[in-house]
Design a protein around this nucleic acid. Structure first.
Length: 589
RNA sequence: GGGGCUGUAGCUCAGCUGGUUAGAGUGCCGGUCUGUCACACCGGAGGUCGCGGGUUCGAGCCCCGUCAGCCCCGCCA
């Protein structure tokens, strides 16, 4: 299959069974070792590396060409595959049993000295990320990057096949869409034909896929590119890929089943066997026990409420906060006495940076009890908290909105620093029963925790909580979590236009505004909408985890920097004045 | 928008308390070498110490600003 009109094999494919065959190869000069009378060339393509040997018996022109080759030059050659003598095999190379003796060798793509190395010495650091992005064509030649993108390809094919087998239809939706008032900032595209009007790039195909359900397509999926103009992170790019799906005549169980099928298939494609069904945890329990909605369940360490036990001890650190009705929550860390004073201080510093009052700690070693609040504790008091000999208690006080992020971070740090061994390699979980609303940090008013098309929990809707106690109202929303990473989220959607209008109203949207912004969805719902719901898997993140890559940038061919620039092609760039005029745009600086 | 780290040869890095001519490895150029596989050995070239300003007799090093990359908070319905 790798055969073309110009070559017979890929370099990295050759094995002992090819010995004696004449082959034609094309590839890049990875390294050259010139011993004078004999020259060895490591020739590289996407399949790997093979050694080419040009000795004294090679034709004169081949020897001359081989002597002049520089790194990263593209050559084509024709020659014989020869078995290497026993003591000259290279077990570190897949092709190490053989080498190629060329009778023809031609430079077809001369290369200037590469700005960053492709062949890297053992133990040599990667070039600066800035340079890797700027010279992406070179960085992408490295076997690690090739492996990542090849894995990405296989995962994409597997996702498609899995969903197609489940009778999902792959349907494309527009890239030029309508700006949305809620959610992330839109990337905006000016209209030439309609002065002053703009398209937006989709943050997700959400409304389109719901309309596809209204249209009766039943099961839809798409490998969808999505765009959000927000600040970036190590695991967030402005442009990213979702495995987006939606299905009709379903309930929560059906959607979770479909998504599990896809995730299990993806992990299988990467050689990882994982079990279904995934365990479930409510949002409330996740926040209570782990301080986060994406807990890493590979580790048992959990947050406990120690208000009742610690309150009466009269510890000054806690007292003033406790008067205001806050809680004391903490982690009883088995073997935590191994944490040094410096470790604990750094944890406390991290806690402070997250805006809490910091971190108190008590260490128990034999009869000795030490720590920032150690003198207030007895062995019995610690025992009641589950803190035994050799353990440490880490405590935070305050409102949950402060102690949860602190203890989440501290928990992850402690696990890392103690090198705790996980109870499982793969901890998938569903986080369910998310709240429908959360308070706006400034006004305290209800704002949507997810998107405004998520159905309220039917029990809470029937109980009238939507009006009486919106913050207690649960959503039919679910997140897939894996080893502390959010893989994606989904929900059952609202299909009753009246409920949808009430939700818009609760959001503070006047009926006329709701009509202007979401009229096309409301009209769809009025036209006979089947019960439906769906999910979106953050595909880049999945690839990053399965490739064991450190950053999303390592699994995207041409990613953006943290400032949303593309260093390779140099985007964004100023538009030329004539284009701007045609688009009716005046730029202010 | 806020905080932190980094920026010295093509690349990866070192550079002491502010003190003479800024170093190493690798790559590059030239040479020797018939079994290497990060070949070895000999020789050589290569620097706007990110950029701008300041302090100082003197700045790669200290101060201010700025740019870029990375990490975190906010943000990401």
């Amino acid at each position: 299959m790798s055969r073309t009109s110009r070559r017979t094999h890929r370099c990295g494919e050759l094995r002992a069974e090819y010995v004696g065959q004449r082959v034609r190869l094309g590839g890049w000069v990875h390294r050259r070792r010139d011993l004078g009378g004999i020259v060895f060339i490591d020739l590289r393509d996407r399949a790997g590396i093979v050694q080419v040997a040009v000795g004294p018996s090679a034709p004169e022109d081949v020897r001359r060409a081989a002597a002049g080759l520089s790194g990263e030059t593209v050559v084509e050659l024709e020659g014989e595959v020869v078995a290497r003598p026993g003591n000259m095999r290279n077990p570190e190379l897949a092709t190490g049993e053989v080498e190629v003796h060329p009778s023809k060798l031609v430079v077809v793509g001369p290369a200037v000295t590469p700005a960053i190395p492709v062949a890297r010495g053992k133990g040599e650091e990667l070039p600066a990320e800035e340079l890797r992005l700027k010279y992406r064509h070179l960085d992408l030649r490295r076997s690690e990057m090739q492996a990542n993108l090849i894995l990405r390809h296989r995962l994409l094919q597997r996702a498609r096949r899995t969903l197609a087998e489940l009778e999902f239809l792959e349907i494309e939706t527009p890239i030029l869409t309508k700006p949305t008032p809620e959610g992330a900032r839109d990337y905006v595209v000016p209209s030439r034909v309609h002065p002053g009007e703009f398209y937006a790039l989709p943050q997700s195909p959400q409304i389109y896929k719901q309309l596809l359900m209204v249209a009766g397509f039943d099961r839809y999926f798409q490998i969808a590119r999505c765009f959000r103009d927000e600040d970036l992170r190590n695991d967030r790019q402005p442009e990213f890929t979702q495995i987006d799906l939606e299905a009709s005549f379903i309930g929560v169980e059906d959607v979770l089943g479909f998504v599990e099928a896809v995730l299990v298939a993806l992990w299988d494609e990467a050689g990882q066997r994982v079990a279904r069904p995934f365990p479930r945890i409510t949002w409330r329990e996740a926040m209570e026990r782990y301080g986060t909605d994406k807990p890493d369940l590979r580790y048992e360490l959990a947050i406990a409420d120690w208000t009742a036990q610690v309150g009466p001890l009269g510890v000054p650190f806690f007292d003033s906060a406790l008067k205001n009705g806050a809680r004391v929550r903490g982690l009883a860390v088995k073997g935590g006495a191994a944490l040094s004073r410096k470790d604990v201080d750094q944890l406390a510093e991290t806690a402070k940076q997250l805006g809490g009052s910091g971190l108190a700690w008590v260490k128990r070693q034999g009869e000795q009890i030490s720590g920032s609040v150690g003198k207030h504790f007895t062995a019995a008091a610690l025992g009641a908290l589950g803190v035994g000999d050799g353990d440490v208690a880490l405590l935070a006080v305050g409102p949950d909105r402060l102690t949860s992020p602190v203890l989440d971070r501290v928990r992850r740090e402690v696990i890392r620093r103690l090198g705790a061994k996980p109870t499982a390699a793969h901890a998938f979980a569903w986080v369910v029963d998310f709240p429908l609303f959360e308070p706006d940090p400034e006004s305290g008013k209800p704002v949507f925790a997810h998107h405004p098309f998520t159905s309220p929990h039917p029990d809470d809707l029937a109980g009238g909580k939507l009006d009486s106690d919106p913050f207690a109202c649960r959503a039919l929303h679910y997140d897939a979590v894996y080893n502390g990473n959010e893989l994606g989220s989904g929900s059952i959607r609202i299909i009753d236009p009246a409920v949808q209008r009430r939700i818009f109203a609760l959001l503070g949207l006047a009926p006329a505004d709701a009509e202007a912004r979401f009229g096309f969805l409301l009209h769809g719902l009025q036209a006979g909408a089947p019960p439906h719901g769906g999910f979106a898997i953050g595909f880049d993140r999945v690839v990053m985890l399965l490739a064991d890559a450190g950053s999303l940038r390592d699994v995207i061919a041409f990613p953006k920097t943290t400032a949303a620039r593309a260093l390779f092609e140099g985007a964004p760039a100023p538009a030329n004045p004539a284009d701007l005029r045609a688009l009716h745009i005046k730029v202010e600086r």
